[in-house]
Design a protein around this nucleic acid. Structure first.
Lengths: 213, 213
DNA sequence: ACCTGAACACCGTTCAAGT
DNA sequence: ACCTGAACACCGTTCAAGT
């Protein structure tokens, strides 16, 4: 089928595709080789081991996040960056668990850090303030992505069904949780993703106060 | 060696010990059996599969986090809870990647959620405000734990050495990142963990403003 | 009832061999 | 130079058998 020669790039793009539609568990050297129309061992000419593929994937995901610009309007740029990051992590939920375990940053990852620092500095943040801002922004954004990905339900329909049954057993032992679920989280219009804008606004407001005083 | 009979509890405690000193990769059914002085298949009388062991581990970790009390002083209770969570996650870094992938909460997990909601409600938070607060607090706390665990270095000594060499290659391509690292992150007294209190304070201040107005 | 040996269908990776 | 078959040391889990 695929007659173009193997390459590190082609391997990584195929790995991204496999992970996107089967999750990280489905991504094995063997399945990857099959998807590429080669044999497992062929790939070891382009990557040292599976870890290097995972590192490459993390960098591919980072590359999809919009880079902030050093315009001086740090709030607009950080908002755009955070929203883009959440979108990208929703698109590649399998990557969330990976970002934490891989400690060898690739070029796109480094470029992303560089652009973010540049945008904050251009907005008037000192180096110490930049450190504060970066830590709290990324902790919030990344943590929110984790929460989103670990919600037990996908659609708003299944949510109610799944939870309703748990609820009955729960009401006695966990009254506050039960009340919260019934009156809020299980209501028709509820979407946890909406909490992102509140939290992001809260963090950005706090940072605004930090630099103004 | 160990003559006390096998039990779900004994299996989970052993699994926690294995994960604590070898990481999650080292925790296999086979290694666990050996640690317990039994054979792999014996454990299937107490747990359905490995996933159930992982679910149990997550609940054991949750059980270690201090429960907030419904005293009305929500800020003190949320501070205590967040600090405790970070401590616990540092003690069991392997669990961080697990919390996200396991979607069947155990009793300690549910009790934790219940107590947190109760503490916020007792502090005067409406249900909607509780949802806001819980989302942003947990996103920040959990995300910060992830950042901490993915730092490439442990001690403050190795930090400089590891990074110094990267820095040289980096300075050209990523000038802002290089400047930031040199002038801040690689300075002797720097400890990323210190950013936690800043971020937590920022989030709590924001929540305080939300409930006061 | 509780435990376990053998076996199955998988992994990532090494090593020696093909073209 | 690029690719690959066979093999090794692992996995989690099923199934049938032991006590």
């Amino acid at each position: 089928m695929s007659r173009e020669p193997l390459s590190r790039d082609r391997i990584l793009r195929a790995a991204l595709a496999v992970a996107d539609d089967g999750g990280l568990d489905r991504l094995t050297i063997r399945s990857l080789a099959q998807q590429l129309g080669t044999k497992p061992m062929s790939m070891y000419h382009y990557v040292a081991n599976k870890g290097e593929i995972l590192d490459g994937l993390v960098d591919l995901v980072f590359a999809e996040i919009e880079l902030p610009a050093a315009t001086g309007d740090w709030r607009a740029e950080m908002t755009r960056r955070a929203r883009s990051a959440i979108e990208v992590l929703r698109r590649h939920p399998w990557s969330i668990g990976l970002l934490e375990s891989r400690t060898t940053p690739g070029p796109a990852t480094l470029a992303h850090h560089d652009a973010t620092i540049a945008a904050l500095r251009a907005g008037g943040f000192s180096i110490v303030e930049t450190a504060h801002a970066y830590a709290v922004l990324d902790a919030f954004t990344y943590g929110f992505a984790v929460q989103l990905s670990s919600l037990p339900f996908e659609g708003p329909d299944s949510a109610a069904e799944v939870a309703e049954s748990i609820m009955a057993a729960m009401a006695g032992a966990y009254p506050h949780l039960a009340e919260f679920a019934e009156q809020h989280a299980l209501q028709p219009g509820y979407d946890f993703a909406d909490e992102f804008e509140f939290g992001l606004g809260l963090v950005l407001d706090g940072l605004g106060r930090m630099v103004e005083r």
